[in-house]
Amino acid sequence: MLRITQTKNTLLDGATIAEQLYATPKDCEQFFESIEKPTELVVAPRSTFIRAGVLTTVRGSAYMEYGNTKMMAIVAPPRELVRSSAGRVNMGVLNCYVNFAAFASGELASLPEREKHLGSMLTKALEPLVCRNEFLNFQLDIRVLILDDDGCLLSTAINCCGVALVECGISTYDLIAASTACIYRDQVFLNPSAKVEELLWQHRGGNALLGSSSSSKKDEKAATIQEYGLLINASMDSFEQLAQCQQCGYLKPETYVRLLDYTLQINKSLRELIKRVLTERVKEQHVLDMRERDEERLEDERLATIIERLQQQGLNEFIQSNIKEDPYTKK
Rank of each mutant, 00 (worst) to 15 (best):
E33M: 14
E33W: 12
E33Q: 15
S34P: 08
S34F: 10
S34K: 12
S34Y: 06
S34L: 09
I35P: 12
I35W: 09
E36H: 13
K37V: 09
P38T: 01
P38R: 05
P38K: 05
T39G: 15
T39M: 15
E40K: 15
E40F: 15
V42A: 11
V43H: 07
A44G: 09
A44Y: 03
A44M: 12
A44E: 13
P45A: 07
P45E: 05
P45G: 05
P45V: 02
P45Y: 04
P45N: 07
P45T: 04
R46C: 09
S47V: 06
S47A: 14
T48Y: 03
T48K: 02
T48S: 14
F49T: 01
F49N: 04
I50D: 02
I50K: 00
I50F: 12
R51H: 05
R51M: 03
R51F: 01
R51E: 05
A52L: 01
A52F: 00
A52N: 01
A52T: 00
G53E: 02
G53Y: 02
G53S: 06
V54E: 01
V54F: 06
V54R: 00
L55P: 01
T56M: 07
T56A: 13
T56N: 05
T57W: 08
T57E: 08
V58R: 00
V58Q: 02
R59N: 04
R59I: 02
R59D: 03
R59T: 06
G60T: 09
G60L: 11
G60N: 07
S61K: 02
S61T: 12
A62M: 07
Y63C: 04
Y63N: 08
Y63S: 10
Y63E: 11
Y63D: 07
M64N: 05
